[in-house]
Amino acid sequence: MHPVETAAAPAAQAARDPRRAPSRGRIGTALASCWLALVVLGAAASSLLPALDPLRADFSAILEPPSAQHWLGTDAIGRDILARTLAGGRSSLIVGAMTVAFGLVAGGLLGIAAGYLRGVVDGAVGILTDLILAFPALILIMAVVSLSGAGYWTIGLLIGGLSVPAFARLARASTISVREQDYVLAARNMGAGPLRVMRTEIIPNVLPTVGAYSFAAVTASIVVEGSLSFLGFGLQPPLPSWGNLIAEGRVHFATAPWITAAPALTLCATVLSVNVLGQALSKGRP
């Protein structure tokens, strides 16, 4: 917690003086990094420390509000919300990471190739993305889940795969608008091959748009996983994820809001942090 405390004082100063925006940005970045580090540490700790078992229920402590023993309270069957929120981070991070890995890398590269090379490649990528988009996602998910069960990998790959078209289309649209720019034409005229042009000219210029979306996509994937739980096709209970903790907790929202509050606020803070980091990274590029 130490870096957060020391960062607080200059942040207040910076807020009074808009010209010092860069320093505020740095502090924001620091805060965001700390938060994300905490989330990752928490997820790791929950797998390692038996005291933080997210599945262990204390049947004598059902629906208890936050207390010294259960810092964030307990849920309907007496499981510790703190432990579940930390462990939920692990599922959500896996799903989120797979979305980016799949969507940004696979989708982004497919889109750039399609947008730059056009022709047959564009057609094939177009058919692939159109097909994924045209097939109702929910029915696809149901079919896959009913065949192979809803583990981390199935859900992560599914949501990641479903995000491929969005990334591919964004990258393609962005590539098309970039490829006729003077600097790209110049590079081409200088005899650079398509791979080289894509690497040196297209990718750096396409990345900001696609990157901006990938931060939204990570969030969306975490939220989608929760919605799937709501419909009964999310991660198998009792595996916790932020999404299904929120979905489970809504039942008790009127009487025990802490069940929903902890994962929901954690999710929001994480999303904000991811975004702040994202902005810092895109500003930092040459």
């Binding site: 229920a57 069957i77 209970p237």
Partner: peptide, 24 residues
């Protein structure tokens, strides 16, 4: 889901390994 989770734990306490299989 909650009923299943509760039962799973109670059975684990006597050494029975129960897997929850959620289906539509």
């Amino acid at each position: 889901a909650q009923r299943a989770a509760v039962i799973q734990q109670m059975l684990a306490d006597v050494g029975i390994d129960m897997t929850i299989d959620t289906v539509d």
